[in-house]
């Protein structure tokens, strides 16, 4: 009987893992199948034309990259810094308890709420207007809880032995963090960055009110320009385009590029992580 349960458990867990894999493969296959015909050099390197019924996705493609870079530039230092604070400096007090809980709660807030928050704080109150900067900062807020949690975990996973050895050699706390704790945690932090990028790249709701353009002919040149972004572009084409049916291949093509972009960034991250791990 025990043997039966053991076998059954193995089967169930193996099955769930398989189902997840199949689901991912299914989605990728579906997108690739529908979108593949649209993919060409022109599709990627040309801006949308003819009321977005023809042409490519260059403008939203670059816009998404810009949003990723600017939002990561904001979220990584703040997230890693906060993670560092929680792991290395914070003592167990009511104050830090409240802080932790707030960050956890923040992770559960729907993305559209972040969008409205960004609208009132960055767009209106701080006067950045509807711009790449506002949209990126809103996305940064959205990915911050993930970044904080991931880096705190990363720092906590650094063995105490390393810290002891460093202190025993006469290192200060900051020297220990900079030379031992941060490098040891780097590979795990990179995982957090990848997850954040995946989240940021695919979001639509937070950027609709804060900086995403329905259509701009040019790639955004400054932080205060509006940007087109792939997910919003797809949303626009499929709900508000001038000819929704005719642009189906464009929509699937854009999704395929978005998925490819996220997977591409992930694999760079995985590669960097294995390199860092190997150096140890």
């Amino acid at each position: 009987m025990r043997k039966f349960f053991d076998k059954a458990a193995t089967l169930v867990f193996w099955g769930t893992a398989l189902a997840l894999g199949a689901l991912l493969a299914g989605v990728l296959g579906f997108v690739a199948n529908r979108g593949w015909s649209a993919i060409s050099w022109e599709f990627i390197f040309e801006p949308p034309r003819d009321g977005m019924t023809a042409g490519g996705i260059w403008t939203p493609f670059v816009g998404t990259l810009e949003l990723i870079v600017v939002s990561m530039a904001a979220t990584v230092p703040v997230g890693v810094g906060t993670g560092l604070y929680f792991s290395e400096y914070a003592t167990d007090s009511f104050f830090t308890h409240v802080l932790r809980q707030s960050i956890r709660a923040l992770a559960g807030v729907p993305s559209v709420v972040f969008g409205l928050f960004g609208l009132s704080l960055f767009v209106i109150f701080l006067g950045f207007g509807s711009s790449m900067l506002s949209a990126s900062l809103t996305l940064a807020c959205l990915s911050l809880p993930l970044m904080v949690t991931a880096s705190e975990q990363a720092f906590r996973a650094v063995p105490q032995d390393y810290r002891d050895a460093s202190y025993a050699l006469g290192a200060t706390k900051w020297q220990t963090i900079r030379k031992v704790v941060l490098p040891s945690a780097a590979s795990t932090i990179i995982t957090g960055v990848i997850l954040s990028i995946g989240r940021v790249a695919g979001e639509t709701a937070p950027i609709i009110f804060t900086g995403a353009a329905f259509y701009t002919p040019d790639v955004a040149q400054s932080l205060f320009d509006e940007v087109m972004a792939l997910p919003y572009h797809v949303y626009v084409l499929s709900t508000a385009g001038t000819n929704i049916e005719a642009t189906r291949p464009l929509q699937y093509g854009a999704i395929l590029v978005l998925v490819g972009l996220v997977l591409g960034i992930s694999s760079i991250g995985v590669w960097m992580r294995t390199r860092l791990t190997r150096e140890k």
């Binding site: 032995d161 050895a165 025993a168 031992v180 490098p183 140890k280």
Partner: peptide, 10 residues
């Protein structure tokens, strides 16, 4: 010198 060898990951 500690009980468990603890070289840095360097």
């Amino acid at each position: 010198v500690f009980q468990k060898p603890n070289p840095f990951p360097m």
